[in-house]
């Protein structure tokens, strides 16, 4: 919290009066923060700071979309940050950075995870699959992607990469989901356009496309 200085101590202990002490207590109780203590990171876009002596920062190898990627990762760095700001994989979106919305969903060894809430260091040796890793090199779409394109799925589509990763995991686990099963499988993802009806249409057809290959 930034330093605040209140020159005048309140004269009364009236409920609404401010004192620095009461104010801070109130803010802490309210869970509010003075600035966005949200997702912070040291982006390595152009000017990443050099690591301090003794820091845990280090070069590691990640297996991402079938490739080995060498990357300099801080100990507190999340996978979403690494993907987006160090590996150029901006298809993975961050909608909340607190495991609330699912926009950052990726697969770790085929299982859905919120990459905003996974520390990059913990995925060494695991297969990371992002939205960029689904289509073939020749541009042929993954059956799930093709089903969604054919079904004109999603509106603003900011949530789409996360949903599609969940759909891929869903069809791997259940080749012919009912709408109710699809809804359960996708319930970790939010769509603020609330295009859920069409998303369910696409999810069922995605399973169809996947079965047929």
């Amino acid at each position: 919290m930034a330093e605040t200085e209140l020159e005048q101590e309140p004269k009364s202990e009236d409920d609404k009066s401010y004192s620095r002490r009461n104010f801070i207590k109130g803010v802490i109780a309210g869970g509010a923060a003075t600035y966005s203590a949200g997702y912070l990171f040291r982006a390595g876009v152009a000017n990443a700071q050099s690591s301090a002596p003794g820091a845990v920062e280090r070069l590691i190898t990640l297996r991402v979309n079938g490739q080995d990627r060498r990357v300099d990762v801080l100990k507190q760095e999340t996978l979403a940050t690494t993907l987006r700001y160090k590996l150029g994989l901006t298809g993975t979106k961050m909608g909340c950075d607190r495991a609330e919305c699912g926009s950052c969903t990726v697969l770790l060894d085929g299982v859905t995870h919120y990459s905003c809430s996974v520390l990059t260091h913990t995925v060494r040796g695991r297969e990371v699959t992002t939205i960029e890793g689904l289509a073939n090199d020749d541009g042929t779409l993954h059956p799930v992607q093709q089903a969604v394109v054919d079904g004109a799925g999603f509106q603003c589509a900011f949530c789409a990469p996360g949903f599609i990763m969940s759909m891929v995991a869903m069809v791997d686990a259940n080749q012919s989901p009912s709408r109710a099963e699809a809804a359960q499988a996708l319930s970790g993802n939010l769509c603020r356009c609330c295009d859920y009806d069409k998303i369910l249409d696409c999810a069922v057809s995605a399973a169809d496309y996947s079965r047929r290959g």
């Binding site: 919290m1 930034a2 605040t4 104010f23 803010v27 509010a32 003075t34 600035y35 966005s36 912070l40 982006a43 876009v45 152009a46 000017n47 987006r84 150029g88 994989l89 901006t90 298809g91 993975t92 979106k93 961050m94 992002t130 939205i131 960029e132 689904l134 289509a135 779409l141 992607q145 969604v148 394109v149 004109a152 799925g153 999603f154 589509a157 900011f158 789409a160 990469p161 599609i164």
Partner: peptide
């Protein structure tokens, strides 16, 4: 749609530029 479903669609925070700085705000408590 293909760009949206493959992660190629670029929203504002997906762009990078050489020497790009990052901003943070001080907000009223």
């Amino acid at each position: 749609l293909v760009a949206k479903m493959t992660g190629k669609a670029k929203y504002a925070e997906d762009f990078r530029a050489e020497g790009m700085l990052m901003a943070k705000l001080l907000m009223s408590p």
